[in-house]
Amino acid sequence: MQVNVTVDGTAHSNEAEPRQLLVQHLRETLGLTGVNVGCDTSNCGACTVHLDGRSVKSCTVLAVQADGHEVTTIHGLATDETTEDGWHPLQTAFHEEHGLQCGYCTPGMIMAAADLLAENPDPSEEEIRDGLEGNLCRCTGYVNIVRAVQAAAAAGNGDGSSVSAHQAEEVSA
């Protein structure tokens, strides 16, 4: 079947078998290997992307279901509106707060965190932990991940506005 999907702002049209998972489409058809696969059971969240602006596990969505929709991956999160240095505030914050060790969970963590901050620009620690419940990290113990999300929230002018501006654009686009 033909899948027409806009990924990170670029329209793509490719053939996909109905059983192809969105994560395979992103990685294998489009070469976006920043979208990771960490499990077979829809638990780990390493494959998290935004579908029409909301975080989803791309291993649990069929590529054909994304036909006609918009996807944002870690490759396209930093846009002109959200960054001055080529990095999204969450990417900067994960770097500065040491929110990763091996880095395998990081793309999914950042995409889940971006959705969390879009909905709640100033989350408490508990709200951050709840919001990242669908993302597993086997290295950090989560403490620095929570700190990084707090730092990114603070960097968004204290109200996360830089992050939510991007999200608003994504939803309306």
């Binding site: 975080s55 989803v56 596990k57 969505v61 889940a112 419940e133």
Partner: peptide, 9 residues
């Protein structure tokens, strides 16, 4: 139910 990503789908 589940986690945010699960609840979105």
């Amino acid at each position: 139910i589940g986690d945010p990503q699960v609840r979105h789908r």
